[in-house]
Nucleic acid binder design. Structure first.
Lengths: 153, 153
DNA sequence: CTTGACCTTCCCATTATGGGAAGCCCCATA
DNA sequence: TATGGGGCTTCCCATAATGGGAAGGTCAAG
């Protein structure tokens, strides 16, 4: 099966399949004589597993471990659970952060007349709110600080 | 005042100050004879405004407009409010998405024994959950689809 | 005058994804 | 059989915002 079919069946774009192969998330695909990648049903299965993992917020760096556990029939379900739990915590953390921003902004929005006059508490807040206080921080984020995890809608 | 002082006073890293200048978010800084950037209090003010805007989740692309409104004393507060409202909506949308993922994962986590045995409903779900259904989508995200908005903690 | 702290520019890395070009391959239809 | 269109290959580029680090100039204090 060519990469186009694998893509259609797994829901992972051909671009991404090649990328996953390139970064070593999935093994090198078999090739036909003319160089076309060739996939079997087991590969589709794996691609779907990856897609679903991405959907649930796992970064690729964690999916490596997830795939290892998946393939290892001697795994301990506790290990899987631990990975998932960490992910949930991370998600909750991000949600809290976003909700804090949204709440603050919403409060400001409600306090703004939203008319033809120029005076606006939103701008006032942006202008004067304390900087060393508040949640602002410049320290290095952890390995999973990014939020671009299959959130495309 | 040199860039280091401007950074300390505004809370924006020197790297970012240069970057903001480079992409045109802020005007070219004045330079001393030897080429050092020179900042005045008004510049610090502007940098703080930007930092606070980032804190509240505004992407840089929107801060341009925010700065314009800030400087324009003929502005209508309605325009500011509209920008902020859109931002709130966006944040809520992202929160919903993350919460959906977290809830699904949490359900799976709760159903997993987490012991020495290999059987695990989490892996089972990742393996078999339908792909065309669920929230998976490959369509292009809008201009503000990224979630990397000063979420570093 | 030296030294160390600061500044400059330039390049690179990050995350996951898509766009697009140049060129080869394969099959169906004329 | 020839040809065309669609699929495949690799390679480079862009995204958003941020930091790291190197090579080299500058400034101020000792």
């Amino acid at each position: 099966m060519n990469i186009g079919d694998a893509s259609a069946l797994s829901g992972v774009s051909a671009k991404m399949i090649r990328y996953y192969e390139q970064i070593g998330l999935i093994p090198q695909a078999a090739r036909t004589a003319s160089g076309y990648r060739n996939y079997a049903d087991a590969d589709i299965h794996m691609l779907r597993f990856i897609a679903r993992s991405r959907d649930l917020g796992f970064p690729i760096s964690e999916i490596t471990g997830l795939l290892d556990l998946w393939r290892n029939t001697d795994r301990r379900s506790a290990d899987v659970k631990a990975l998932a739990q960490a992910r949930v915590q991370d998600l909750r953390h991000k949600i809290t952060h976003l909700a804090d921003m949204a709440d603050t902004l919403e409060t400001l929005v409600r306090s703004c007349a939203g008319n033809e006059r120029p005076d606006c508490p939103i701008l006032h807040n942006l202008e004067t709110e304390a900087f060393p206080a508040s949640g602002r921080c410049s320290h290095h984020a952890g390995p999973h600080a990014n939020l671009n995890e299959r959130i495309t809608s």
